[in-house]
Computed example of a mutant assay.
Amino acid sequence: MHPILKVNISELTVSERIQLAEDLWDSILATPDEVPLNDEQKRELDRRLEIHRQNPNRGSSWQSVKQRLGLSE
Rank of each mutant, 00 (worst) to 15 (best):
M1S: 08
M1A: 10
H2N: 11
H2M: 10
K6A: 15
K6H: 11
N8F: 12
N8H: 14
S10K: 14
S10F: 13
S10G: 13
E11M: 08
L12M: 06
T13P: 00
V14C: 09
V14W: 14
S15H: 12
S15K: 13
E16P: 00
E16L: 00
E16I: 00
Q19Y: 08
Q19H: 12
L20R: 00
A21Y: 13
A21Q: 12
E22H: 12
E22Y: 14
L24D: 14
L24R: 03
W25A: 13
D26V: 00
S27C: 09
S27Y: 05
I28R: 02
I28T: 06
L29Q: 09
L29C: 13
A30D: 13
A30Q: 11
A30H: 03
A30I: 02
T31G: 03
P32G: 02
P32D: 01
D33T: 04
V35Q: 07
P36I: 07
P36V: 11
P36A: 13
L37Q: 11
L37Y: 15
L37W: 11
L37C: 10
N38Q: 04
D39Q: 08
D39A: 11
D39N: 09
D39F: 08
E40S: 07
E40R: 01
E40F: 06
K42L: 12
R43I: 03
R43H: 11
R43Y: 07
E44N: 07
L45K: 01
L45N: 03
D46N: 04
D46R: 00
D46M: 04
R47F: 12
R48W: 03
R48H: 04
R48M: 06
R48E: 07
R48C: 02
L49W: 13
L49K: 04
E50G: 02
I51H: 12
I51W: 14
H52C: 09
R53G: 01
R53M: 09
N55A: 08
N55Q: 07
P56L: 02
P56T: 00
N57F: 08
R58G: 08
G59A: 01
G59R: 00
S60I: 12
S60Y: 13
S61W: 07
W62C: 06
W62Y: 15
Q63H: 11
S64H: 10
S64R: 03
V65C: 10
V65Y: 05
K66C: 15
K66I: 03
K66S: 10
Q67T: 13
Q67P: 00
Q67C: 11
Q67N: 11
R68Q: 12
L69D: 05
G70W: 02
G70C: 00
G70P: 00
L71Q: 05
L71H: 03
